[in-house]
């Protein structure tokens, strides 16, 4: 029987998924919903369009955080990537309660073994060694495994006389491994020093966010330092600074453009132009 009332019933809305989880952390992976709201400008984006624009908002240029696998797909020529140290996982060096469980949970959830993927491959036909950090895995924090994988990748580059490119995305040193994490800063920086000594090229690409012990070690040591637009890059966290100086921080503080203006990075490059820019740099050093 035809129900007259149904004509006025509200149809179902399409669910718009916000790119934020309960902790207020941005979710860098491609959302499952069809529509995505840009966190910066509020525009509703069709997820296929978003993927086509390699996770950047067509309206306001906002670069969504992306995972390490996606990053490698966007950067390395298809079929050329060979991953290093794929199965390396962390121990619990200071016996921090619950750390092993947390790691296992993250491995299951993210299908990553740790917060960095390293390996070699080609960028528009040119050989490179690459390390890509992933903020999905414990905020990209650096513990023993991240330090070891990055150091090995740098050493391989030095030995094979290849360039090394590191995409950073990290909240800093990993607290759960205590002093061991701090020492990874020295270890990775020392490997860069050796690479420099042999005339090797080192490019860093700073992505949102790059902070703490990663900023204070290999992230800031590139021969050429590139950043993605609007990426948060700094040493201390903004809340800590505000508490220390007891005043509000200016707009744009610790953003990629701010660092460019202060002279600490070479270029701000859109994600869409990243592969071409890297290609150009590699060419000039080949």
């Amino acid at each position: 029987m035809f129900e007259f009332k149904r004509i006025f019933k509200r149809s179902r809305y399409i669910e718009v998924k916000n790119l934020e989880n309960e902790d207020g952390e941005k979710r860098p992976n491609i959302p499952s919903g069809m529509w995505v709201k840009c966190k910066t400008c509020g525009k509703i984006l069709y997820s296929k369009d978003l993927e086509n624009s390699i996770m950047t908002c067509e309206n306001c240029r906002t670069h969504f955080r992306i995972g390490s696998r996606e990053r490698i797909n966007y950067t390395i020529d298809s079929g050329t990537f060979i991953e290093y140290d794929k199965n390396m996982i962390s121990e619990n060096p200071i016996d921090f309660e619950g750390y092993e469980d947390k790691l296992q949970e993250l491995r299951d959830k993210t299908l990553l073994n740790e917060a960095v993927i390293t390996g070699e491959g080609k960028i528009n036909g040119q050989d490179t060694i690459i390390a890509v950090m992933d903020s999905n895995f414990m905020m990209g924090s650096m513990g023993s495994v991240v330090g070891e994988k990055i150091t090995r990748a740098i050493e391989k580059a030095t030995e094979a006389k290849k360039p090394i490119i590191i995409f950073t995305a990290s909240g800093g040193a990993r607290m759960q491994e205590g002093i061991y994490s701090l020492m990874q800063m020295a270890k990775t920086s020392a490997a860069i020093a050796r690479h420099n000594g042999k005339g090797g090229l080192y490019i860093t690409v700073l992505t949102d966010p790059t902070t703490g012990g990663v900023t204070a070690s290999f992230a800031m040591l590139g021969d050429i330092i590139i950043a993605e637009p609007n990426a948060l890059i700094g040493f201390a966290g903004q809340r800590v600074i505000e508490q220390t100086i007891k005043q509000q921080l200016p707009d744009g503080f610790q953003k990629a453009e701010f660092l460019l203006q202060k002279g600490f990075i070479d270029k701000v490059v859109d994600r869409k132009a990243m592969k071409d820019t890297l290609t150009e740099i590699l060419k000039m050093h080949s």
């Binding site: 700094g234 600074i241 100086i245 202060k262 600490f264």
Partner: peptide, 12 residues
């Protein structure tokens, strides 16, 4: 951890 320290590149 100050504003000036960040501006002048504490991490670097």
């Amino acid at each position: 951890c100050g504003l000036g320290a960040e501006e002048r590149g504490q991490g670097e």
